Amino acid sequence: MGIGAGMMAHQWQQAELLDKTGVRVTGVVSRVVLPTGKGQISGEIAYTVAGHRHTVRKTPHGGYPHPSQGDRVCLEAAREHPRLVRLCGDRYPDGDDEFPTLALITTAASIGLLFVTGHWIAKRREIRGAAEPSADRPS
């Protein structure tokens, strides 16, 4: 739960940095990477920021569902940290779907943990109440 919250905060900070200092660059798919466990084809995308060449592996979406070598891809890179990059149109660095999913999982886990803890505390009190001798009972 704490790890999920930390990851969400980190993604949020990265998104804010990209929103403030992001520059649009055109990347070119230099290599197609075969499907991983998710079953999606990703591409190794080369791009240049401030005269320096960088490479990132992303799964293009929208107009690029199946990347091919040589495809041009719109990217947003942070001016001061050009390795921080996202596809144009994404709101978070790792894609629009990952952040809301992570937020939902973290919220559900927090609620579940609170429910289980509350239930455990109530049961412990019930057991303690049954085990203590009552002042009304004759001994």
Results as ranks from 00 to 15, higher is better:
L84D: 05
P138G: 07
A122L: 06
E98M: 09
Y47W: 02
I127F: 04
L18D: 00
V56S: 12
D136N: 10
R125T: 11
K38Y: 05
T55L: 15
W120I: 00
Q40W: 06
E132D: 10
A77K: 09
H10K: 10
A77W: 03
S68Q: 02
M7D: 00
I111T: 03
R86F: 01
A135P: 08
L102I: 13
T117Q: 15
T36E: 15
T55F: 15
V23N: 04
P100M: 08
L113P: 03
Q13M: 14
A130T: 11
P67L: 00
P138H: 08
R83Y: 05
A5C: 06
V33L: 13
A50N: 14
G51Q: 04
F115N: 03
L84G: 03
G2Y: 09
I127N: 05
A5Y: 05
R53P: 02
D90E: 07
D97H: 13
E76P: 00
R124K: 07
H81P: 04
T101E: 14
R128S: 14
E16Q: 15
G89R: 06
S110N: 03
E132W: 12
G129M: 08
V23P: 03
C74L: 12
A78P: 01
A5I: 04
T59E: 06
V28F: 09
A15Q: 01
G129T: 09
A130S: 14
E76I: 11
H52W: 10
S42N: 10
I45N: 12
L113Y: 14
A15E: 00
T101S: 15
T21V: 09
S110L: 12
E98Y: 14
D90V: 02
A46M: 13
P35I: 01
A46D: 15
D19S: 13
T101I: 11
I127R: 14
M8I: 05
L87F: 03
Q11A: 06
R124D: 08
E126F: 04
S42P: 04
T106I: 00
A46L: 14
G112D: 10
I45D: 04
L114D: 12
S110R: 02
R91D: 05
R72E: 08
H119V: 07
F99C: 07
S139P: 05
D19V: 10
G4Y: 11
H119A: 14
K58H: 08
P93N: 01
F115Y: 13
E76A: 02
L113F: 15
P60L: 01
S134T: 12
G43M: 00
V23H: 05
Y64N: 09
C88V: 08
M1C: 11
R72W: 00
G70N: 02
R86C: 02
M7F: 02
Q40H: 07
G62R: 06
D94L: 13
A109H: 03
T26D: 04
T55R: 15
I121Q: 15
L113E: 13
R91I: 02
M7A: 03
A5N: 04
I3Y: 13
G62N: 06
C88M: 08
E76C: 02
G4F: 08
I45Q: 11
T21L: 14
R125H: 14
R31L: 10
E98N: 12
S134N: 10
Q11F: 01
H52F: 09
